[in-house]
Design a protein around this nucleic acid. Structure first.
Length: 956
RNA sequence: ACUCGGGUACGCAAACAGGCAAAGCGACUUGUUUUAGAAACAAGUGUUUGCGGGUUCGACUCCCGCCCUGAGUACCA
C-alpha cells in the first residue's frame, strides 16, 4: 500500500478507538481538568452541514492535545432533538416524531464518528431521552417553587415568601394567588400573533402585512394564557457576572445590550375627577408611592425626570388598560378604529413604518404633578405596551420620537434643557420648537430648578417626587420575561396540573378552580401521550386554540390524585429548555437519583471551553445562565457561571460566486449601473427590469478594485460568497468531502481556512491543498515505492539529528503548542507545513524527530497520525502519548540578520549573534561600509537600538 | 439609523503591547520524470497593507476623518 489512502486508514482507526474506549472520560480527575464542549446540534434530516465540523474540530484538537498533555478531559456530544421540523415531518407523513428523530440521530452519530472526533460516546444524550426529559421537568418544578428575594438578591423557596397580614386574612386562595405572583415560573396573558382561521399562534416572522404568511389569513395580536419565566428578576446578576467570564467583549456587549438596563423614575399623573387633584396630592403625601397604581393615575417611566416641566402630552400604548377609561364619548369611534388597526399589525409591521408617527387623542387630560398643568393623553403605537409601564410622558423638545409626533399633530413644544455651548444645536430653533435636543445641559422653564445641571436635577426631582409620594427612582430592562410555552406536540410536557371543579367535572364539564400544582418528583417524567393522527387539529370551543396535547386520551389528560381530578397542562416547553442544562448532564449522564451528582459537578464545572455559532450568542447563553443561577441559588449547584471561556466560530460560506445582470434583450449591464426598485428587484438606470445571471469564474478578470467580464471589460460583475443554502445550491456535504479527500483532510482544511472566529468562504481547491500536504507527510515517512507492504521511507532512520534539524523541530513544537493554546489553528498548520517542506529536502530524517512531529500532527489529523505512529513501531494508540516538549534554548538561531536604518529607511543588514548588547550593535552598525558612507559629513542626532531587532540612525 | 467586526498579491491568509511586510496554502510560469488522464519533484512569478490626514527616529499596527463590506439590533421613553 504505497499511497496515502484515507478510505482505508480512517474507518480502521475509528473502529479501534470505539472498541478500545480510547476516549473514555476518567472516573476520577487526576491533575488538571478540561471540559471542552460543543454546542450540540439539532439532528435535522439533512444531516451534518460543513459548518458543524468547524467548531467540533476546534474543540477536538484542544481535547486531544490536553489528553496528551496529561489533563483529565471531558469531551461529550449529544443532541438537541425537540423542535419544529420533526413535528412538521410528523404532520406530513404521520410518522411519530420520536421515530424520525431517532433515525436522524443515528445518521448524525455515523457522520460524527466518520470525522474521528474524540467524544466519549458513552455519555451521548438527547434532550428527548425520557430520562433527560424527567430532569428538565424537575428543573421546571424548581423554577415553579422559587421566588426572587430582592433584598437578598437570591432565589428562594416559595414557602419562604413573607405573606402580608392583609393577604393572609383573606384566606388560602388569596395566599396562593399572592405566591403565584412571585414564582419564577408563572402564567400570564401574553400578547401573541393569533390567526383565528388557522387556529394557531404564529411567530413574528410568519406574519406579513397583518396576514399569515401561509394562506394569507388575517392575524390579530391577542392575549393568550402562557407560561412565563421571570428572567427579569435575574437581569442585574446576568449583567454583572459577565465581568468574570472569558468571553469576547463583543459577545458581552451583545448580552448587555439585550438586557438593556436603564435607570430613571416612575411618575404618577393624576387622571381622576378634575376637582380631586388637591385631595389626591394630600393623600399621596401621606401614603407615599403605592406599589401598584390605582385607577385614578397614569403611571409612566422616564429616564429623564429632569424634563418633567417640558411634558406637554402623554402617550399610552394601544393595549394599555386605561384606554377604555380615558376615552371620551366624542373620541370613542376614532380610538376604537385606531386600536383595532394597531392590533392587526405585527411587531415587524410597526417597525417598518416607524418613521411615520400615528396616534389618536383620547379626549382626556392628565395632571402633571410638578406644575399641575393638564396635558392631553394620546394613544400611539410608538409606545410599547411591554416596556416600562406602557405609558410615557412626552417631552417633544428633548426626545426625537416625541418631537416627530408633536410636529405631526401640532402639539406644544416647550424646551426645558439649555444645551451646553459645545453642543451642535441651533439654540434659536430649539427655543422656537423647530428642532429637538436629546442631550444633557442646564434646566430652563423649570420653575425653581432653572439653572440646575441635568444630573443634579435628576437627583433633586427624584427626591422630591418620592417625598410627595408621586414618583420614585426606577430601573427598567429591555429584557422581557421569557415566554416559555408553545402550543406544539414535540416538546417537554409541563409537569403542571390544573385543579378542576370536582362537582362540574362529574357532570362532564371541565372548569378550572385556578389552583395549580406541580407534579411530584416521584411521578416524573410526564411522558408525551400517544397520538394517533398528527394531522388532526384539536377543535377549540369558542375559537380558542388548543394545543395538540389536548388530543390525548382522557387517562393522560385528567389524572386523579388523592380523589381530586386535574387537567394536565397541554402546552409544551420551547426547544430552548433542553439546551439550558445539557452541559450539566454530560458530567453525570446516567444518574437516576439526582440530575447531577454534586461532587462530580464540583470537579468538572465550569465548562472550560465552549465553542459554537454566534446565532446563540444571546438567547441560549442567557437562558442557560439564568437556569444555572436559579439552581445555584437553590443549592443544587456550586458554580455561579456555566461557561468560563466562550468562542464563537465564524460561518462557513459557499464558494465565491460571480453575478452579472442582463436586460430583456440579453445585453449585459454593468453592475455599477444597476439600481433597485421598491421591491428590491434589480433594474437599470431607466427602470427596466434586469435578470441576474451567474457568471463562470473563468469568464471574469480583476480590473482595479472590481471584477469585470473578460469579453467586455466595461461590464462590472458582482462577486460575493453567500451563506450555504439549499435554494442557492451551494451546500457542501461532509460525506462527499470525506469520500473524496478523507476526514483528516476535511478537519485540516476547516482549521486552515482562516481564523476560527471569522466568516470564510469554502473553496474546493483549498481542500485539495491540505490533502496535498497530508500526501507529503505520508511520503516523508512512508516508502511509497513499495507496493507490497507498508514500510518506512529509506530516509527515515536512527540518525542523530543535526543542529538545524533539532532547531526546526523545537521551533515547530513551540509554535504549534502556543498556537493551539491561542486557538490559532491555521498558523499551527502552516508551521507544520514548513516543517514538512524542510524535512522533505533532508536525506537523513531521524525517526525520533519524525515521531515528535507525528504527535504534533495527531490532534489535527488523528487517523494518519495513528497509522504513521504504528508504522514507526508502536503497538498502542498515540492518543495518550506525552505531548512533545520544546527547549527554548534549542529554538534560537546561532546568528540573526538585523536591519540598519538611516532616518527610518533600511540601508543595510548586519549579521549578529542573538542577544548582542546595544553598544556592540551600534558599533557593528557603524562599522558597516554602506552605513559609514551614508553618514559621512552628517551629524548623528539620535541612535535607536532595539536588541535583536534593528539599529536606526537619525542623522542630518 | 445604531452597535460590533473586517478591508494586506489573482483568491484564502500571516505579522499588530509600533521595529526586516507578505510565513503557509491555492493560482500562475518554466523545467524534470512517469503518463491514457493525472500525479510527483524542482526552480520561479507577484506588492507597498481601502482612501486622506496626524503622532513618531520609525506606522499594516496608535489617533482623527472618509469610503466599501459583513453581522447583529431596531421607536425600550
Amino acid at each position: 500500500m504505497p499511497r496515502y489512502n484515507p478510505q482505508d486508514i480512517e474507518p480502521r482507526w475509528q473502529k479501534y478507538w470505539d472498541e478500545n474506549h480510547t476516549f473514555k472520560t476518567p472516573d476520577k480527575i487526576s491533575g488538571e481538568k478540561l471540559y471542552a464542549l460543543d454546542m450540540f446540534p439539532y439532528p435535522s434530516g439533512d444531516g451534518l452541514h460543513v459548518g458543524h465540523p468547524e467548531g467540533y474540530t476546534a474543540t477536538d484538537i484542544i481535547a486531544r492535545q490536553a489528553r496528551m498533555a496529561g489533563k483529565s478531559v471531558l469531551h461529550p456530544m449529544g443532541f438537541d432533538a425537540f423542535g419544529l421540523p420533526a413535528e412538521e415531518y410528523a404532520i406530513k407523513t404521520n410518522t411519530p416524531p420520536r421515530v424520525s428523530t431517532e433515525r436522524n440521530i443515528e445518521n448524525f452519530v455515523r457522520q460524527l464518528k466518520m470525522l474521528g472526533f474524540s467524544y466519549d460516546w458513552q455519555r451521548q444524550i438527547s434532550t428527548t431521552d425520557i430520562d433527560y426529559v424527567r430532569w428538565t421537568q424537575w428543573i421546571f418544578t424548581v423554577l415553579f417553587d422559587t421566588w426572587y428575594d430582592n433584598d437578598r438578591q437570591k432565589g428562594r423557596p416559595i414557602s419562604a415568601l413573607p405573606i402580608p397580614d392583609d393577604v393572609r386574612a383573606e384566606g388560602a386562595d388569596a395566599v396562593r394567588q399572592y405566591q403565584d405572583d412571585f414564582r419564577l415560573a408563572y402564567q400570564s396573558e401574553a400578547l401573541v400573533n393569533w390567526c383565528p382561521k388557522l387556529r394557531t399562534v404564529l411567530a413574528n416572522e410568519e406574519v406579513v402585512d397583518g396576514k399569515s404568511e401561509v394562506g394569507g389569513h388575517p392575524v390579530v395580536r391577542k392575549p393568550l394564557r402562557q407560561w412565563m419565566l421571570r428572567i427579569t428578576a435575574y437581569a442585574d446578576r446576568l449583567e454583572q457576572d459577565l465581568d468574570g467570564v472569558d468571553w469576547s467583549e463583543g459577545i458581552k456587549k451583545l448580552q448587555r445590550d439585550w438586557i438593556g438596563r436603564s435607570t430613571g423614575a416612575e411618575v404618577d399623573f393624576y387622571i381622576g375627577a378634575a376637582d380631586g387633584v388637591d385631595a389626591w396630592k394630600a393623600a399621596r403625601a401621606q401614603s407615599g408611592f403605592p406599589r401598584k397604581p390605582a385607577d385614578d393615575v397614569l403611571r409612566v417611566y422616564t429616564t429623564r425626570p429632569d424634563t418633567l416641566y417640558g411634558a406637554t402630552y402623554m402617550v399610552i400604548a394601544p393595549e394599555h388598560a386605561a384606554v377604555g377609561r380615558l376615552t371620551t364619548a366624542d373620541q370613542k369611534e376614532a380610538v376604537t378604529t385606531y386600536v383595532d388597526a394597531a392590533a392587526a399589525k405585527s411587531d415587524r409591521d410597526r417597525q417598518d413604518d416607524k418613521s411615520k408617527k400615528t396616534g389618536v387623542f383620547t379626549g382626556s387630560y392628565a395632571i402633571n404633578p410638578v406644575n399641575e398643568k393638564p396635558v392631553p393623553v394620546w394613544i400611539a403605537d410608538y409606545v410599547l405596551a411591554t416596556y416600562g409601564t406602557g405609558a410615557i410622558m412626552a417631552v417633544p423638545a428633548h426626545d426625537t420620537r416625541d418631537f416627530e409626533f408633536a410636529k405631526t399633530f401640532g402639539i406644544d413644544i416647550v424646551p426645558v434643557v439649555s444645551p451646553p455651548a459645545t453642543a451642535d444645536v441651533d439654540v434659536q430653533k430649539l427655543a422656537a420648537g423647530e428642532v429637538c435636543f436629546a442631550g444633557v445641559g442646564t434646566a430652563i422653564n423649570s420653575g425653581s430648578y432653572d439653572g440646575m445641571a441635568t444630573d443634579e436635577f435628576k437627583t433633586a426631582i427624584s427626591k422630591l417626587l418620592t417625598q410627595d409620594g408621586v414618583g420614585r427612582a426606577a430601573v427598567n430592562y429591555k429584557l422581557r420575561d421569557w415566554l416559555f410555552s408553545r402550543q406544539r406536540f414535540w416538546g417537554e410536557p409541563f409537569p403542571i396540573l390544573h385543579e378542576l371543579d370536582q362537582e362540574k367535572y362529574k357532570e362532564g364539564v371541565v372548569e378550572f378552580t385556578g389552583a395549580v400544582r406541580a407534579v411530584d418528583m416521584k411521578s416524573l417524567p410526564v411522558n408525551l401521550p400517544q397520538i394517533e393522527d398528527y394531522t388532526a387539529k384539536p377543535d377549540g370551543d369558542s375559537g380558542q386554540y388548543q394545543p395538540p396535547l389536548d388530543l390525548a386520551d382522557k387517562q393522560w389528560l385528567f389524572p386523579e390524585i388523592d380523589g381530586v381530578t386535574y387537567k394536565r397542562e397541554t402546552n409544551t416547553m420551547p426547544q430552548w429548555a433542553g439546551s439550558c442544562w445539557y452541559y450539566l448532564r454530560f458530567i453525570d449522564p446516567k444518574n437516576d437519583t439526582v440530575f447531577i451528582d454534586p461532587e462530580l459537578e464540583r470537579q468538572w464545572m465550569p465548562v472550560d471551553l465552549y465553542i459554537g455559532g454566534a446565532e446563540h450568542a444571546v438567547l441560549h447563553l442567557l437562558y442557560a445562565r439564568f437556569w444555572h443561577k436559579v439552581l445555584f441559588d437553590r443549592a443544587h449547584l456550586q458554580s455561579q457561571e456555566p461557561f468560563q471561556r466562550l468562542v464563537n466560530q465564524g460561518m462557513i460560506l459557499g464558494d465565491v460566486e460571480f453575478t452579472g445582470y442582463q436586460n430583456a434583450a440579453g445585453n449585459w449591464v454593468s453592475s455599477k449601473d444597476v439600481k433597485r426598485d421598491q421591491d428590491r428587484r434589480p433594474v437599470d438606470t431607466v427602470g427596466e427590469p434586469l435578470e441576474l445571471v451567474k457568471v463562470d469564474a473563468g469568464d471574469v478578470e480583476k480590473s482595479g478594485e472590481s471584477w469585470v467580464l473578460s469579453s467586455d471589460k466595461s461590464i462590472r460583475i458582482d462577486s460575493r460568497a453567500y451563506k450555504m443554502s439549499k435554494s442557492r445550491g451551494n451546500v457542501v456535504n461532509p460525506d462527499d468531502i470525506v469520500k473524496d479527500f478523507g476526514a483528516d483532510s476535511l478537519r485540516l482544511y476547516e482549521m486552515f481556512m482562516g481564523p476560527l472566529e471569522q466568516a470564510k468562504p469554502w473553496s474546493m481547491k483549498g481542500v485539495s491543498g491540505v490533502r496535498n500536504f497530508l500526501d507529503r507527510v505520508w511520503r516523508l515517512i512512508v516508502d511509497d515505492q513499495n507496493d507490497q507492504s507498508l514500510t518506512l521511507n529509506a530516509a527515515v532512520g536512527d540518525f542523530t539529528p543535526t543542529e538545524e534539524q533539532t532547531r526546526t523541530l523545537h521551533q515547530t513544537i513551540k509554535a504549534v503548542t502556543l498556537d493551539i493554546e491561542k486557538l490559532s489553528f491555521n498558523t499551527a498548520i502552516a508551521r507544520m507545513m514548513e516543517f514538512v517542506n524542510f524535512f522533505t529536502k533532508e536525506k537523513q530524517r531521524p525517526q525520533s524527530v519524525m515521531e515528535s512531529f507525528v504527535l504534533l500532527l495527531s490532534p489535527f489529523a488523528p487517523h494518519i497520525a495513528e497509522e504513521l505512529w504504528r508504522l514507526m513501531g508502536h503497538a498502542q494508540s498515540l492518543a495518550l502519548e506525552p505531548w512533545p516538549e520544546y527547549d527554548e534554548a534549542l529554538t534560537v538561531e546561532s546568528t540573526i540578520e538585523i536591519p540598519v536604518q538611516v532616518l527610518g529607511k533600511i540601508k543595510a543588514r548586519i549579521n549578529v549573534v542573538p542577544g548582542t548588547a546595544k553598544d556592540e550593535l551600534k558599533k557593528l552598525a557603524l562599522a558597516d561600509e554602506k552605513i559609514a558612507e551614508l553618514l559621512v559629513g552628517k551629524k548623528i542626532i539620535k541612535t535607536v537600538v532595539v536588541p535583536d531587532r534593528l539599529v536606526n540612525f537619525v542623522a542630518k
